[in-house]
Amino acid sequence: MKIVITSKGNTPDSIMDSRFGRAQWFCLYNTETGKTSFHQNPNIEAMGGAGTKTAELMVELEAERIISGHFGPKAKSLLEKFNIQLIEVDIEEPIQGVIDKLDQTIPFQA
């Protein structure tokens, strides 16, 4: 499964970004391969519609699940059309910590 975690930086020790549409970076984590890649958000400076533009990017990255602090209504409605699971969490944790937690929980959800 491909999971996106919104991130403030481009390394595993970066803190999770609580914003979705205007998050600094996206960490794409592939649970099958265990690999991560970081993608810069091109929509940070968007005047409006950052949420929908970022949602389009998620579809292009083939994300199946996204972990962020908050999703705006327009982003939410677009992501739901692609059956992408959205998880809102209120934590200030490094990306690696989030990944460790995912690794612990995913086998039980299969």
Partner: peptide
């Protein structure tokens, strides 16, 4: 200019 149009080629959306 206002990001009102979404086109996702991959998904023909």
């Amino acid at each position: 200019e206002f990001n009102a149009i979404s086109i996702i080629k991959k998904a023909r959306f």
